[in-house]
């Protein structure tokens, strides 16, 4: 465990807590893409299958349970909670996220570390996580006014994978040159997708105006 990875995990955890806070405190999920939340739930389930088979550390197991349950809780809220579900921008959240699932799965069948069920699920979760934010970014461009908590949620979500890239650089130089090109490439794509969001978030912060993504 190194500082970059710990910072990354904490930033990721914080992003989920910010979203849970927004939904719980405002009883609203306006501006939040349910499709992105569903994709994240699939990512965590596909990646953390080893939760019951391989014990790595208490920290690792606890965090896996937290991520799976929190993503499931957010999806449940957006689908079933009587007050929250009414605030879902159904007609704005129109990204065809099934395409992302299919493309990631095909990619995982072709590019994986080993052609085993576990490894294909792991590669699938890595590829899907890289593009899971797309429905949310499209929704932000559509819904002109982005409320602060949703903006902060996306910001922390983007920052977490950037910390992981630093973690991979650190591990590359300290633990030997393990070939981990799958998370490397997917992580770079994932962070690049946030680039324009980071730019407009920084502008809105600098000019002290509401965050608005150009259509």
């Amino acid at each position: 465990m190194n500082a970059f990875r710990f910072l990354g995990d904490m930033t990721h955890l914080f992003s989920v807590l910010v979203l849970l806070l927004k939904i719980y405190a405002t009883k609203s999920c306006s501006g939040v893409s349910r499709k992105t939340q569903e994709l994240y739930m699939v990512v965590f389930v596909a990646r953390y299958m080893d939760l019951f088979t391989d014990y790595i550390s208490l920290y690792n197991s606890v965090m896996k349970v937290v991520f799976i349950t929190s993503s499931a809780a957010i999806v449940w809220c957006m689908r079933r909670h009587p007050q929250v579900r009414r605030t879902y921008d159904r007609d704005q959240d129109t990204f065809r996220h099934v395409v992302l699932v299919a493309a990631s799965f095909v990619l995982a069948l072709i590019f994986n570390e080993r052609f085993t069920f576990r490894e294909i699920c792991w590669a699938f979760s890595i590829y899907l996580e890289a593009v899971a934010i797309l429905p949310q970014l499209v929704l932000l461009q559509r819904s002109r006014n982005v409320d602060n908590l949703t903006g902060q949620y996306v910001l922390f979500l983007g920052a977490y994978r950037a910390f992981y890239i630093l973690n991979w650089i650190y591990r590359y130089f300290t633990e030997g040159h393990t070939s981990r090109w799958i998370p490397w490439i997917a992580g770079l794509v994932q962070t690049a997708l946030y680039a324009d969001f980071f730019y407009y978030y920084f502008l809105s912060w600098k000019n002290n105006v509401k965050l608005e993504l150009p259509a």
Binding site: D50, D54, I56, N60, M63, K64, E113, R114, R180
Partner: peptide, 10 residues
């Protein structure tokens, strides 16, 4: 066979 590197990251 080379032991599979344990996936210790989240």
């Amino acid at each position: 066979a080379t032991p599979e590197p344990v996936k210790d990251e989240l």
